[in-house]
Amino acid sequence: MRLENDIAIRREVLSILADDVALGVGDGWHQLVGKALVGIQDLTDGQVTIRKVSERSGLLTIATDAARSLFDDATMRRVYAITGVATDASASACEMCGCQGRLITTARPRVRCAACGDDEPARQRVWQQHRGGINEAAAYYLRVCLEHSRLFPVANIVVRVCLDDRDHRVYLDEVHDRLVWWRGGSWLEGVDEAVRDQFRRLDFDRR
Score class of each variant (00 low, 15 high):
91 A>E: 12
91 A>M: 06
91 A>Q: 09
92 S>I: 02
92 S>W: 00
92 S>Q: 12
92 S>R: 08
93 A>H: 11
93 A>D: 03
93 A>K: 02
94 C>L: 08
94 C>A: 03
94 C>R: 05
95 E>G: 05
95 E>V: 04
96 M>E: 10
96 M>T: 06
96 M>Y: 05
97 C>F: 04
98 G>P: 00
98 G>D: 06
98 G>M: 01
98 G>L: 08
98 G>W: 01
99 C>T: 09
100 Q>M: 09
100 Q>K: 08
100 Q>I: 01
101 G>T: 05
102 R>V: 03
103 L>S: 00
103 L>W: 03
104 I>V: 13
105 T>C: 15
105 T>F: 11
108 R>V: 01
110 R>S: 03
110 R>F: 06
110 R>L: 06
110 R>N: 09
110 R>W: 03
110 R>D: 04
111 V>S: 12
111 V>E: 05
111 V>A: 12
111 V>H: 09
112 R>H: 07
112 R>I: 08
112 R>N: 09
112 R>D: 06
113 C>V: 07
114 A>D: 12
114 A>F: 06
114 A>T: 11
115 A>V: 14
115 A>P: 02
115 A>T: 13
117 G>M: 03
117 G>Q: 07
118 D>Y: 04
119 D>V: 13
119 D>T: 13
119 D>N: 14
121 P>F: 11
121 P>N: 04
125 R>F: 08
125 R>H: 11
125 R>P: 02
126 V>E: 08
127 W>L: 15
127 W>R: 14
127 W>V: 13
128 Q>V: 06
128 Q>A: 15
128 Q>C: 12
129 Q>L: 15
129 Q>S: 15
129 Q>N: 15
130 H>N: 11
130 H>M: 11
131 R>C: 06
131 R>H: 04
131 R>G: 08
131 R>K: 05
131 R>I: 07
132 G>T: 12
132 G>N: 12
134 I>G: 07
136 E>G: 07
136 E>D: 11
136 E>Q: 05
136 E>V: 05
136 E>P: 01
136 E>W: 08
138 A>R: 00
138 A>D: 01
139 A>T: 01
139 A>P: 02
140 Y>K: 13
140 Y>T: 12
140 Y>L: 13
140 Y>Q: 14
140 Y>S: 14
141 Y>E: 01
141 Y>G: 05
142 L>D: 03
142 L>K: 05
143 R>N: 09
145 C>T: 11
145 C>L: 00
145 C>N: 03
146 L>F: 01
146 L>K: 05
147 E>I: 13
149 S>R: 15
149 S>V: 14
149 S>F: 15
150 R>L: 08
150 R>N: 02
151 L>H: 02
152 F>I: 10
152 F>P: 00
152 F>Y: 15
153 P>T: 13
153 P>K: 12
153 P>L: 10
153 P>V: 09
154 V>P: 03
156 N>Y: 04
157 I>T: 13
157 I>R: 03
158 V>Q: 01
158 V>K: 07
158 V>H: 00
158 V>M: 04
159 V>E: 12
159 V>W: 08
159 V>M: 03
160 R>W: 09
160 R>T: 08
160 R>Q: 11
162 C>Q: 13
162 C>F: 12
164 D>N: 09
164 D>C: 07
165 D>N: 15
166 R>C: 11
168 H>T: 07
168 H>E: 04
169 R>Q: 14
169 R>W: 09
